[in-house]
Amino acid sequence: MIGIIDYGAGNLRSVSNALDALGVTWQHVREPAALSDCTRIILPGVGHFASAVEKLAEINMMDALRAVDKPLLGVCLGAQLLFDTSDEAPGVSGLGLIPGNVALLTTRTVPHMGWNQVTPRGNNRLFDSATPRHFYFAHSYVCEPADNADIAADVTHEGATFCVAVQCGNVCGVQFHPEKSASAGMDLLRRFATC
């Protein structure tokens, strides 16, 4: 059973639809107690770092997620929330599960929008192989792990190479939208759900 944290995030429906298509069972998690029924957890998210932290705190999920000891996957803003801080919301604390900051993209074209080729790095639980595949992106901020060893994949956009997937122990995050990335995204979600 995968628990999808429901705090009103915009891509909640898309994530659960993708899991349905894979035949993976899931439930919405709206309170910390419901986490105990789940073997894996997905934290979705679209929008602003500060308002997401606020909504998670309202349902007492910030501390609950910090304490969780199960595979956790953050998607898009959900991946950014895993970090300590974000330039989008100075002074607001994220989950702090992966050391580092979230910074505004400095490329000419922002948002980084569309399909880009993702190159997996190192051994990680997210990708079946080291072969680059295309995933769909729509974001203006990027995760910058303090430790390069936490980088699980990167992309190149207008000459800049940046981190788009992270893994630190049980905690993973992807800046792209696997639920909107056709077969490449489905493969990633299947792997997270089963490995």
Partner: peptide, 11 residues
Amino acid sequence: LQRLSRVLFIP
């Protein structure tokens, strides 16, 4: 749109 989102895995 709800029916579409159940079968469309592209944006």
